[in-house]
Amino acid sequence: MEQIRDTSSIKGWGADSDKLNRPAHTMWEIPIEGTGAHWETPEQQPGFKDFVSIERPRVTKVFGNTVHPKGLSGLVRKMAFKKSEGTFSHWMMLIFADRIGIVEGYLDDFKQGKLPHPLRERGWNMDKKFKTRRYYKVLTMSGLLTVGLIASVVKLTYGNRR
């Protein structure tokens, strides 16, 4: 048999032993004090520019409204939203669209005059501090790759002229 443990030193042990004192002891309880809502049905937020799940009859009353679908990733998302949430293809198309969005993100950065810095965006400063070996390994590999690329371009350009 398992031994009975002494719980007397455990701070707060058993404070919520009574299940009736736990906030969600009945899952479907209607709160007496209300939920904070003072409407039967909320007003509709205007300006929806996204896709609606085909498992819904309409746009919900509120929604996020900042990163709208666009470009090739937007087209893939449009296809994804023709499928229900129960289909594997719906989610895989969304993940595929997310990956296309990464490339589009680079292009957007360049268009806005921003130079993306993938290593800095990955927080490599922390590696310098806490994983120095990995930091210098990545730095060396990146350096060698860059030199190799430049050398190849130079060779292709000037090599062809001879």
Binding site: M27, W28, I30, T35, A37, R56
Partner: peptide
């Protein structure tokens, strides 16, 4: 949470049905 849908009325605020158009 909208506070007024079927789920919010029963304090299931993590299941509100009026806040995500893209999924149910």
């Amino acid at each position: 949470a909208c506070g007024s849908c079927l789920f919010c009325k029963h304090q299931l605020y993590g299941n509100c049905h009026e806040t995500v158009p893209q999924a149910s």
